[in-house]
Design a protein around this nucleic acid. Structure first.
Length: 825
RNA sequence: GCCGGGGUGGCGGAACUGGUAGACGCGCCGGACUCAAAAUCCGGUUGGGGUAACUCAGUGAGGGUUCGAUUCCCUCCCCCGGCACCA
């Protein structure tokens, strides 16, 4: 450490070996410091780290190091979300096995994570494709099955008729299979589901307790769960006495506006009609070819076909037509709706297209409402043209309809959720085997706990078309655990969201061999701070919250929620677009580390944007970060002859010294607030740069100034350490600092320096800035007023007797409001 | 289409609770050092008008509330994320 040049490669290796030797990042439950759990979303081992990872993990590491310096026993683990589709794709492309490909990638990425200086307790590493992890996922699934929370049902999948395989949505491009190019059809397959809807209400209400989460994420989850309370109404079929069509509606107040019923293309009555009516059959088969993605369905043309079914309106007795319609979703409500084109946008569009009547029954109290024949009026309002409801507002009318129809037994209140049960079966190889056996005699039988894990065979022939598990007799051929006769193993694997739904808990009990978790989960959970991409705002975070509640009900984890605080970080962009191979705008983190060092990469990431917003990558910005770190290095070296170690007495400072001392303490307070409360690391870095600039310019005059200079620089190193840990650790050592900076206590601001005597306040006239004024702490408002009127430059803008009123904001500004008539025309 | 977020100098961004718009950095311009260049240091840098003091305009567009709006409300435009089998 005697080189005078800033050489990141040397000092970063040096600092990392010091931390490792001192086991700074390895924590035990017996640690006397209070526990604090910082977690970053683990990566999929795609090959190499990308900038999004670097940003995510830098944020997490900054938070972890900040809390450690504030006296916490910080747990910060890392692992790999190692099952998934890309391994299968790569395996086909490179003629390797998914297991080997994955393990190679993990080794590469782990090396990259270490080079970046992230402080992980690597003893706790989790790799989800290893049996010691997934065996407990299988165990948990069986527990859920026994409790009725896992069940089997048919569901639609994308089917490639040429490759004879199930496709992920991602593998369907413009309705065709990505490899075969054949038009994709949908097919119904029996699959496993987990009953997340049983927890819908709790998942919804739990959001209110998550005050440490961004409001937008909570809002997205609330909307995703989509609780709606309404009415189920039975419409009697005219031609089949006693048969009814059950619809779900939240707008029973518009019941007199119903002009037709619409059924989902998959509705049983539609399928029945298709057997007799070729036009319906044609429509159903067309719908079967459409994409499964909600976005595709919602943006497609709203089309339909009339059915030879008529229903009776329960209140008017009128005959209504029934249609099959593309925009009605089989999975939501009852798969059938009462259409009110005057007051629903989709019903309206459909009615216009097929020339169905539009009957308005709601108007707004205010004037200027649109013509319902032209545009649907979807707001609530006052009911008209509805005998018995006229003049009621929407809520009252709904209540009355509920009473009427409820009394006749043809309607009942119903709660519906947009949230659907979670389909966890995947017809794929590289995933966790579902631990079930299909026995011809006993039906579905779970694998006994003593036989877990069901190992995923790794020496398989991998064609890439169908899952090797379905062709590997050694795998699927087994005996029934119940009757011991020949049986077939389940060959589907789990959705990879399963692994990422409980890994946060397993880190605490990473090496527990005889149970899914142990008491260590109670010590560390909930995660105090979770950090990850905004793209996981709904699915992953909802599934993990759900699993936490399942594990809680089984007694394995404390509390109702897994993540107390959440930071959703924004994307890393280049030229305004997400970095991707197809756009050719990828910047490899390793190349950046090699050229500039980890600290520069980390500093740039934190400085360039607030963590929750997207970050624009800029090579010149990186150079700026490097320049700053070099300047800091030089500051420590160049200032050596001018500073001395000692006890600071602010009274003995020169005037300049006193100013620097005030600035130092304002920086401590501000940066601590930025790190710990606001989580805006970019503003913290700006404050540190400002302090660095002031310090470089500072020339000690008094003897005490030299002590101050020493203290300012030491403090600067502490404040910067979470972001740029290597250079600060090295400079700390050069300055003769005691112990490791990584374990040093966080500095505290001296309240004496923060107590201000005077402020600079702004003077406005009619809201326009006209100057400023230095005001003492105890100066009265009337004294300030007189001084403004006495100040020629300010009074110039104020006509005599023209003041209407004074707006005085203490410590900030004065706004002089002028009388209108005193203004020039 | 639906849900969520964003739009501020040439660029990334700051302004935390409605109170100085443009902190900090990049880039650019000028200067110092140098035979020269790089590196480094110093100064300037929202736009218009003015030698200047100063002055007018200005936070995606339009409107509103307010003494005062980047911040709150309404309408609209554009970009990004999610939409259940990518992770």
């Amino acid at each position: 450490m005697s080189d005078h040049r800033y050489d990141p490669e040397t000092i970063e290796a040096w600092a990392q070996s010091r931390w490792q030797k001192e086991q700074v990042f390895e924590v035990e439950e017996q640690d006397p410091r209070p526990p604090y759990y910082v977690l970053s979303m683990f990566p999929y081992p795609s090959g190499r780290l990308h900038m999004g990872h670097v940003r995510n993990y830098t944020i997490g590491d900054v938070m972890a190091r900040y809390r450690r310096m504030n006296g916490f026993a910080v747990l910060q683990p890392m692992g790999f979300d190692a099952f998934g589709l890309p391994a299968e794709n790569a395996a086909i492309q490179n003629q390797t096995s998914p297991a080997r490909w994955t393990e190679t990638n993990i080794a590469t990425m782990k090396g990259q994570l270490k080079r970046l200086g992230f402080g992980y307790d690597w003893r706790r590493e989790i790799v989800t494709c290893r049996p010691e992890y997934y065996r407990w996922e299988q165990w948990l699934f069986i527990e859920l099955y026994r409790r009725g929370l896992a069940y089997r049902e048919k569901a639609w999948v994308n089917w490639d008729p040429v490759d004879q395989t199930v496709l992920a949505n991602e593998q369907v491009i413009d309705g065709r299979g990505w490899r075969s190019g054949a038009p994709v059809v949908r097919r119904e397959v029996s699959q496993w589901f987990i009953r997340i809807t049983a927890y819908a209400e709790e998942l919804l209400h739990g959001l209110e307790t998550l005050t440490g989460w961004p409001e937008e994420v909570r809002r997205m989850q609330r909307n995703w769960i989509g609780r709606s309370s309404g009415l189920e109404i039975d419409f009697e079929r005219m031609e089949e006495a006693g048969e009814t069509i059950r619809v779900f509606t939240t707008r029973a107040d518009t019941i007199f506006g119903v002009t037709y019923l619409a059924l989902a293309p998959e509705h049983p009555m539609v399928l029945e009609a298709a057997q007799k009516d070729p036009a319906v059959a044609e429509f159903v088969s067309k719908m079967r070819r459409r994409e499964m993605r909600e976005a595709a369905i919602e943006t497609a043309d709203r089309e339909g076909v009339p059915l030879a079914i008529r229903v009776r309106h329960p209140l008017t007795g009128e005959t209504l037509p029934v249609w099959a319609a593309s925009f009605v979703l089989e999975g939501y409500g009852t798969g059938a709706i009462m259409a009110v084109p005057a007051h629903d946008a989709r019903d309206h569009e459909f009615a216009r297209r097929y020339d169905l009547p539009i009957r308005p029954v709601i108007r707004l109290s205010g004037a200027g409402e649109p013509d319902p024949q032209v545009q649907a009026l979807t707001e609530e309002g006052v009911v008209f043209a509805s005998p018995g409801l006229d003049g009621l507002d929407s809520a009252e009318a709904r209540e009355r309809v509920r009473e009427w129809l409820g009394g006749r037994g043809i309607a009942r209140p119903a709660l519906r959720y947009r949230l659907r049960d979670w389909g966890v079966s995947r017809q794929r190889y590289w995933g966790c085997p579902i631990p079930m056996v299909h026995c011809p005699d006993c039906g579905i039988v779970p694998v006994p706990a003593k036989d877990l894990p069901v190992l995923l065979p790794e020496d398989v022939a991998f064609s890439g078309v169908s899952s090797p598990l379905t062709e590997d007799e050694r795998f699927f051929s087994t005996t029934c655990p119940n009757c011991h006769r020949p049986a077939r193993r389940e060959t589907d694997t789990f959705d990879t969201f399963m692994e990422s739904s409980w890994y946060y808990a397993r880190y605490a009990a990473y090496n527990c061999e005889d149970a899914i978790l142990d008491e260590r989960a109670h010590h560390w959970l909930p995660v105090n701070q979770y950090v990850g991409g905004i793209e996981h705002a709904v699915l992953h975070l909802l599934y993990a919250r759900f699993f936490h509640k399942l594990l809680r009900d089984l007694g394995w984890v404390p509390g109702d929620e897994p993540f107390a605080r959440l930071l959703s970080q924004g994307m890393v962009l280049k030229d305004g677009a997400k970095m991707s191979k197809s756009k050719g705008n990828v910047v490899d983190p390793e190349a950046i580390i090699t050229r500039y060092g980890a600290d520069t990469a980390r500093f740039f990431m934190m400085f360039a944007a607030p963590p929750d917003q997207s970050l624009e990558w800029s090579e010149q910005g990186v150079e700026g970060a490097e320049r700053y770190l070099k300047r800091l290095w030089r500051l420590v070296d160049d200032s050596a002859p001018r500073r001395s170690h000692g006890v600071l007495d602010p009274e003995a400072l020169s005037a300049d010294g006193r100013r620097l001392w005030v600035r130092l303490n304002e920086t401590i307070a501000g940066v601590s607030h930025d790190y710990g409360v606001r989580e805006t690391f970019n503003t913290a870095m700006a404050k540190l740069m400002e302090l660095t600039n002031s310090t470089s310019r500072f020339e000690p005059v008094a003897a005490m100034d030299r002590v101050l200079l020493d203290q300012v620089i030491r403090t600067l190193l502490m404040l910067l350490h979470p972001v740029a840990p290597h250079i600060t650790e090295a400079l700390w050592s050069r300055m003769g600092g005691v112990g490791l900076l990584a374990l040093h206590a966080w500095p505290e601001a001296d309240p004496r320096a923060l107590a201000r005597e005077r402020w600079e306040i702004v003077v406005q006239v009619n809201g326009k800035r006209r100057g400023s004024l230095s005001v003492g702490r105890d100066e009265s408002e009337s004294a300030i007023r007189s001084r403004i009127l006495a100040d020629a430059a300010l009074a110039r803008h104020i006509p005599p007797d023209g003041v209407e009123r004074w707006v005085m904001v203490p410590g900030r500004l004065v706004n002089v409001v002028l009388r209108k008539e005193s203004l020039p025309p």
